[in-house]
Design a protein around this nucleic acid. Structure first.
Lengths: 223, 223
DNA sequence: TAGATTGTTAATCGATTAACAATC
DNA sequence: TAGATTGTTAATCGATTAACAATC
């Protein structure tokens, strides 16, 4: 880390020391900034102010400056933040600069939509395998990838170093699949089905819930 | 405010008074409980404990009991909460007991996946119209609905009383569509594209960001 | 009864925000 | 220089949690 030192400054930072875990809130917010920044970069934006970031993320602009300044002085007063450099700073902080391999389950409409989107690719996630249980779909192409048999799961997870599984399967298929994934050593399951998955504590399940987000937005509209 | 008084109980609740808005955090958490409860009900579960809810939502069980007890005594000690009755209580609190009409934009893979899922229907959202700009798709069926022309937008929004629009369109199509939606009086835009949408302050944009959630989950896996 | 789980308190911790000097 | 925006402080507010009596 090492601050900008003018002679013997006694580390005046309450900043997170390198080895420390971010708090849940900070990590969540940094991820959101990253999303906006990534998209802003795509649109050719070179600098962005904390106020603009605030407009897009609904996070207070002071909070944003505070979150960032904990890790260094990334901005330029009167100008804002350089989009490119902020992206790489945040990636460094979140330790997600590298590539990570994903396995996708389900070659239906949702699976196909996910495979053909670059929403994961933009953030360093690469879909390296697609699985489906429907024998009729085996061997078919989803984007550049062939649909594989779930029986190959263990082998593929190991060969491709897969840490994340994305489940775009019917609810009733989700739990058995989750069990197989746990056995195969996958640590993060991203669940697009509605099923409530039971997994051991070392595995993280994130269930996508658009309807929940909608309910939430609607509440503030209705009141 | 007002302690626990014996005798003539003068509303000993620090509970949110009926007219008060929930805080952002409470509303978000209640929405999540609702999702789990809805699914638990589907699976035939009759009661659920705060600990079980905690396992599925990653919200501390004390927090859950606290959130709920602010609105009444919904649970039974030693037993837990009745799933059915808790669903309707939370719906009442969130004022989302009614039906709400949604318009879906984009009849591609993602749009089709959304239309055929019951993830929205389960929470009282009904997709009443599907739009696409591709002339080749007009008139085709997506589930039970015909694909309509975006030119009909204003008319449909008014006739069907549409408050929410779900955008499952390519990024470059999103902003023009958002502008049209704002003109038509839609107040909530649920954005599945990556575009950063600019809308007036009275309109809420929620951008779905699976990659952000993944980054976040990954951070805690990596550290 | 014994076991389980709620409802609630009290204490702590972190998030949030307004305000403003620093500085580009 | 004048205007804009960051970095940072200080004060407040709400979220979180452990603990436990109440009670099913």
């Amino acid at each position: 880390m090492s601050d900008v030192t003018f002679r013997a400054e006694p580390a005046p930072e309450p900043a997170p020391s390198p080895g420390e875990r971010l708090s849940l809130g900070v990590a969540a917010r940094l991820s959101r900034y990253l999303q906006v920044l990534t998209q802003a970069r795509k649109m050719g934006k070179e600098t962005i102010s904390s106020q603009e970031l605030s407009d897009y993320t609904h996070v207070n602009s002071t909070q944003i400056r505070r979150d960032l300044s904990g890790f260094g002085k990334f901005g330029k007063r009167g100008v804002g933040y350089n989009v490119d450099s902020l992206v790489s700073q945040i990636r460094k902080i979140l330790r997600t600069s590298g590539q990570h391999n994903i396995a996708l389950f389900g070659a239906g409409h949702l699976g196909t939509a996910i495979a053909s989107s670059d929403i994961f690719a933009d953030h360093g996630f690469r879909i390296v395998a697609v699985f489906d249980t429907d024998p009729a779909k085996l061997g078919a192409q989803v984007g550049p990838l062939p649909v594989r048999d779930v029986d190959d799961l263990g082998k593929v997870v190991e060969e491709e170093d897969i840490v994340v599984a994305v489940l775009a399967v019917p609810s009733q298929a989700a739990q058995p699949l989750a069990d197989a994934l746990v056995d195969a050593g996958v640590k993060i399951i991203f669940n697009y089905s509605e099923a409530l998955l039971q997994v051991p504590p070392e595995v993280t399940v994130h269930t996508s819930s658009p309807a929940v987000d909608l309910l939430y937005a609607l509440y503030f509209y209705l009141t």
